[in-house]
Amino acid sequence: MAVYERAWRPYAGRLTPMRRRFLVVTRYALAEAFSSRLFTAFYAACFLPSLLALFLIYISHNLALLEQLGLTREFMGGLTLVFFRLLFLWQAIPGFFLMAILAPGLIAPDLANSALPLYLSRPIDRRDYVLGKLAALFLVVSPPTWVMGLALFLLQAVEEGGGWGVTNWRIGLAYLVGHLVWILVISLLGLAISAWVRYRPAALGALFALLFVLSAFGSAVNGITRSSIGDIVHLTRAIASVVQHLFGAPTSSGLPVAVNWLTLAVVGLLSIVVLNRKLRAHEVVR
């Protein structure tokens, strides 16, 4: 009978708790993203609209400076709903480009290089993998969008006083919910496309094609049917309408906001279905 000396000892150190294990995937995804100097520079540039807004809020409450600049308090009276809606747009556009740059490269290279079985042979499952990638997008896009937006809203509320924050609570809500919905839908869509097409260039093209072509298609359907039915597939208009509704402003879509919410929900669900189908730990014979 063979006798084996037990020389092997399992690792007995501290482990990352299971509920936070997906953040390991996030950490590596973030490291990969910020390894590009170009991306880091673009990321820094994404804060510019918010910084400009910060400057405007600051000077609008600095009477001495306004006087020096030859401006009156009324000049800055526009720091209201319109100002915050414009700021939202100028945060959302760079946020979209951040997601468009990052999302296609998060899953496609793992599939193209058959790396998924390696991930899934560790103690993480497919849900953790997707959650990890999603968290990477969320952590990257949040600071220049809703985090800065809410901070500016609070700053304006504090500076303005007199219940401004309470009166304009919808602005805060729109920043939080609007950006979160925008980030969630585009992130899920980007990850699903990344999983579907396997190659980063194709994934980037597909993401833009889906948004541009579907939007153009939606507009063409509206034109041809002389209705607003095309807005069902007009993803950017659906998001815009939801955000406008959150701000309490008139919506740009001719459809009820509930239909716009439904469009976003369907896109999100379809993306999850695609991710579920495509992320498998086996080689696909082509």
């Binding site: 194709a202 094609a209 072509v213 153009a216 298609f217 063409a220 041809i224």
Partner: peptide, 17 residues
Amino acid sequence: MFALFHLRFVVFFACAV
């Protein structure tokens, strides 16, 4: 439809692919 949708988007992206 041809000028604003078919040519600019459909033909363009189909050729790109």
